[in-house]
Design a binder for these strands. Structure first.
Length: 682
DNA sequence: TGCAACTTCTT
DNA sequence: AGAAGTTGC
């Protein structure tokens, strides 16, 4: 009623009408212009991959029809600059207010902050809301008011907050449409011709859209949830929630999930169903990991690009695109790893356990830079989620205070018998091994010649020998770690002399570095919280303060990325698409192979019949139990900025109290980048 | 019940 | 690796 102009409701990753505070605020204020802006270039490296775009396309169509039935439409815009586009919409519709829901990835933090500044300067009232989390990151702190640095402590705090998460909001009954007659929609392209064939198969297994998300939730609540704790360890088990892509795009609100799950928990607790209660706790923990990924992203906005534990930047990653390709194609010679990678390639999906297996193999055995793996997950996963992926890869890579042990290698052979004891999973995805007896299915290289022959397997020919032996990997890992500590100590010595800024020199000594690391850091100079004295609507999003212009960041970023590539330095390979079928590019194999890796890469025989991606997808989706999934939202991974990173190495007392024995044996490494003074933590 | 061998899990 | 829980005698 204030002002009379209509409001813009800016949809992003909250593609639902239920429990959507921004939408409801718009409806309360009067006429609404609902907007979706497609600006993938804003995301830099992390613009959505093929399967993600497929999902968005269908989810938007779904949202649009819901909005129509409520009385309005969805305005869609193609843009290279969301904020500029918002401003245009303001001008052509006469809107006086803008509402949106919070996001926590670094790009969004910067962009949304700018939106508030720019539109505010044009007299638009901007308000933003929490619709993605149980609790806002800045509301969850330890007794001293500092952010937590371990998941367990964080999650315990969340579960014992003095107030419950907000109850879910009902959808509006009716929406009065703003006047968009002078503001035409752009038609958005989410797939090109070459992608349509592969995309068509996704529809057999998945139904994007908020009401389908709702159905998936109900199905899970009434079905698999109760056995979640007992079934979750099988690679094949279709006992996960299948909610993660829905949650990623905000088709269902995590608060609704939380409340409904807790109702079940109370019910089962009253019945004395111990397993049911335990299942709920485990499932909620996976929701908690999703929360934590946003928490980390907010507190450490660079965690998708750099390790949170400083010493890891000295780890000598093996920069070998041949290894990388073998991993992507599922041709490492380790059946469990290969089966997982081929499933990912074919379906955009992977059980949580298998994600951990393939990621751990990537980091510990191949010792490839974790950001490559993360980028590949980003490009190929249907539920690709930057915050979760960053948290997961950092966890696997040992770069968080509560990570897995850095120096322990998980043996895919043993994990194979653990997660796939009968070899069914391997046989489904590796047809060339289908006739191998279970006894050898997870370590064919040990099988007697006669057995291999009977199974029609010729190692090194139609199935590869291990690309790296586990023992060799262990040795190489130890060497890498000593090298890392040496470098770290050297860098520390230099810094203590105060002769150099830590950052410039450390980047130099890291064999794998991303150009935008330095740029982002220098340009954003984020400060953790707004001054507490500032009067701020309670629901407003806090952002790391951004002091430099985003435009400059973008320019420098892209140009420097280009230079980097031209120099042939290591960076995340771009343009990885799922629909490049593995057998198609052996021709390129030698070409793209990195100079370092030639001698160690076994020759792959190109004649192997993999069955193409489309066939395997079709097979899996039609075969009843072919669907597998990961739980609700849960690929773990990383975080946002608090201060300039060059500060993070000063001071010796800011060690993180830690539960990691690995860190305890290297106390000098306890500083976490960007957690300055954490007196005590778990 | 006592105790050791065995397993499962670690964000 | 180490803790915590489970099984088996």
């Amino acid at each position: 009623m204030a002002g009379g102009g209509c409001s813009i409701v800016w949809f992003r990753r909250d593609l639902r009408v239920e429990d959507n505070p921004a939408l409801l605020a718009g409806v309360r204020a009067g006429a609404v212009v609902a907007v979706f802006i497609w600006a993938p270039e804003e995301e830099g490296h992390y613009n959505p991959g093929r399967v993600s775009r497929w999902w968005i396309k269908h989810s938007l169509a779904h949202l649009e029809s819901s909005l129509r039935s409520l009385g309005t439409t969805l305005l869609t815009k193609r843009s290279a600059d969301s904020v500029a586009t918002l401003l245009e919409i303001v001008k052509s519709t006469g809107a006086t207010q803008l509402f949106f829901n919070h996001l926590y990835d670094p790009m969004s933090l910067v962009r949304d902050h700018r939106a508030k500044e720019v539109l505010g300067a044009h007299g638009v009232a901007v308000r933003s809301f929490n619709s993605d989390l149980l609790y806002e990151p800045w509301d969850v702190n330890d007794a001293q008011g500092h952010p937590f640095t371990t998941f367990t402590a964080f999650w315990e705090r969340c579960l014992s907050m003095p107030y419950d998460p907000e109850a879910p909001l009902l959808p509006p009954k009716r929406i009065i449409s703003g006047d968009v007659s002078r503001c035409p929609s752009d038609s958005l392209m989410f797939e090109d011709e070459s992608e349509k064939g592969s995309n068509a198969l996704l529809a057999r297994a998945w139904s994007p859209g908020w009401s389908n998300a709702d159905k998936a939730l109900t199905t899970f609540l009434n079905g698999a949830l109760i056995e979640y704790s007992t079934n979750r360890r099988k690679a094949d088990a279709a006992t996960t929630s299948f909610l993660s892509p829905h949650l990623h795009f905000g088709e269902v609100s995590v608060r609704k999930v939380f409340h409904l799950v807790r109702i079940k928990q109370v019910l089962w607790a009253n019945e004395g169903n111990k397993a049911g209660v335990e299942s709920v706790n485990l499932f909620l923990k996976s929701i908690g990991l999703r929360e934590y990924s946003r928490y980390m992203s907010f507190n450490h906005p660079y965690s998708h690009e750099r390790p949170l534990l400083g010493h890891l930047k000295f780890f000598p990653w093996v920069v070998d695109e041949g290894y990388f390709k073998a991993w992507r194609q599922g041709r490492t010679g380790y059946p469990l790893v290969d089966a997982g990678m081929r499933e990912l390639w074919a379906t955009g999906w992977l059980h949580d356990r298998i994600r951990v297996v393939v990621a751990s193999f990537f980091v510990k055995v191949l010792q490839l830079p974790w950001r490559w793996g993360m980028k590949y997950f980003w490009d190929t996963l249907l539920d690709a989620d930057l915050e979760s992926d960053a948290l997961g890869w950092q966890y696997i890579s040992g770069t968080l205070p509560d990570s897995r042990e850095l120096d322990r290698i998980d043996n895919p052979q043993f994990e194979g018998y653990k997660f796939d004891p009968n070899g069914e999973y391997v046989r489904r995805w590796l047809p060339e091994l289908a006739r191998l007896p279970t006894e050898w299915i997870h370590h064919p290289w040990n099988a007697p010649e006669s057995v291999l022959e009977a199974a029609g397997i010729e190692l090194g020919s139609n199935y590869p020998l291990p690309v790296v032996g586990i023992d060799a990997a262990k040795v190489r890992l130890q060497q890498a770690l000593s090298a890392m500590w040496q470098q770290e100590a050297a860098s520390r010595a230099v810094m203590e002399n105060g002769t150099e800024e830590g950052l410039g020199e450390s980047t130099e000594s890291a064999p794998f570095a991303f150009p935008q690391d330095t740029l982002m850091e220098e340009n954003h100079e984020p400060v953790r919280n707004n001054p507490p004295a500032t009067i701020r609507r309670y629901e407003d999003q806090m952002v790391p303060s951004i002091t430099c212009s985003l435009v400059r960041v973008e320019e420098e970023e892209t140009s420097s990325v280009r230079n980097f590539a031209e120099e042939g330095r290591a960076e995340v390979p771009r343009d990885i698409h799922v629909n490049q079928e593995p057998t198609r590019d052996p021709l390129n194999q030698e070409v793209t192979q990195n100079r370092l890796g030639n001698s160690t890469m076994p020759q792959f025989n190109i004649t192997i019949a993999l069955g193409n991606a489309e066939d395997s997808t079709a097979e899996s989706s039609s075969s009843g139990n072919g669907q597998r999934e990961r739980d609700g939202g849960v690929v773990p991974v990383w975080s946002p900025p608090t201060s300039s990173f060059s500060e993070h190495f000063v001071g010796d007392e800011n060690g993180i109290g830690t539960s990691s024995s690995y860190l305890q044996s290297h106390p000098q490494s306890h500083q976490i980048m960007s957690w300055r003074r954490l007196s005590q933590t778990g």
